[in-house]
């Protein structure tokens, strides 16, 4: 009787498994095969590692890779640190208006990535609100060309992503902080430990698994960055904000579709995600040994 129930339970599992195999695993294998083929449209021929060789000499690809890395190494740490500071402040038991602050900082999560990108694009337009404000405050003399300057366009993308995702990460840390016994902080208070020391020696180590999780999460997200550069800067100016995902999209739809080469670029993201995740997991372990 129990054995039969065990077997019949497969009926609940099979539909989901089939869908995941067909729409995730099979395409991944397919893409791997395609990445060794060249040709235009559906006319593909096996061509060894030609696509991967091409990557090495492709200026646009290098630019996309470079931009993605800039976004990764600048934006992710800023956001994680901000989220950590805010969440440890919100975890203070004597803080007033806690719910109000939390809801406000979490609020950017209601917007879709496309919507907030357009909002930021208009706020940061050359004749837009932010420039008007900065000029009124006499911080700048002439408008900053946020969208059309290669440097400021990157800064704008970083500001935008940080705005959208800091509250999201904060929620994970708040959930983690609730699990920390308050008496640890009270004991620290009695010992005259200051706020920074509490943050460094109690909060950070105890939150480490969650910090690791959110860092890996953000890394994976950043490596796939698409909606924001597509809608704020359209990858420009002169590809200075193009990302790997955008480049794959362009290879498929902007130029003559080159499935083989696009698949090879895709696999660069896969390999990067695997490598960076392993590095981060290892780094997490190392600090344990300290």
């Amino acid at each position: 009787m129990k054995d039969k129930a065990q077997k019949r339970a497969w009926a609940f599992i099979v539909p989901g498994v089939i869908l995941i195999v067909v729409f995730v695993f099979y395409p991944m294998i397919q893409a791997f095969v395609t990445s060794f083929q060249t040709g235009i449209g559906a006319n593909l021929k096996f061509d060894g590692i030609a696509n991967y060789k091409r990557l090495l000499t492709d200026g646009t690809f290098k630019k996309a890779l470079f931009n993605t890395f800039i976004f990764l190494v600048v934006q992710v740490p800023i956001m994680i640190i901000l989220a950590l500071i805010i969440s440890s402040m919100l975890n203070d038991s004597r803080l007033k208006f806690k719910g109000l602050f939390r809801t406000a900082i979490f609020l950017p999560c209601v917007t879709s990535l496309v919507s907030y990108s357009i909002i930021f694009k208009s706020l940061f337009a050359t004749d837009g609100f932010i420039n008007v404000l900065l000029m009124k405050l006499n911080i700048i003399n002439s408008p900053v060309t946020w969208v059309t300057d290669p440097f400021w366009a990157k800064v704008l993308i970083i500001i935008a992503i940080t705005w959208r995702w800091t509250g999201y990460n904060m929620v994970f840390y708040l959930a983690g902080l609730q699990g920390i016994d308050k008496s640890i902080y009270e004991a620290a208070d009695l010992d005259g430990v200051n706020a920074f020391q509490k943050f460094r020696y109690i909060t950070m180590p105890l939150l480490k698994p969650i910090i690791l999780f959110t860092t890996i999460n953000s890394t994976i997200g950043t490596l796939q960055l698409f909606d924001e550069p597509m809608n704020i800067t359209n990858g420009g100016p002169a590809n200075s904000t193009i990302t790997i995902s955008m480049y794959i999209y362009n290879l498929l739809f902007k130029y003559q579709p080159n499935f083989g080469y696009a698949a090879a670029v895709s696999y660069v993201i896969v390999v990067l995600i695997v490598i960076l995740s392993i590095i981060q997991l290892k780094a997490g372990e190392d600090k344990d040994g300290e």
Binding site: I20, F23, V24, F25, Y26, P27, M28, Q30, A31, T34, I220, L223, Q224, F226, I244, S245, I248, Y249, L252, F259, A262, A263, S266, Y267, I269, V270, I273, V274, S277
Partner: peptide
Amino acid sequence: LSMMVPFAALMVPLFRL
């Protein structure tokens, strides 16, 4: 394992499929 697969990598094969 499928959680590790980025959608960016699925764009090409899914479109073809």
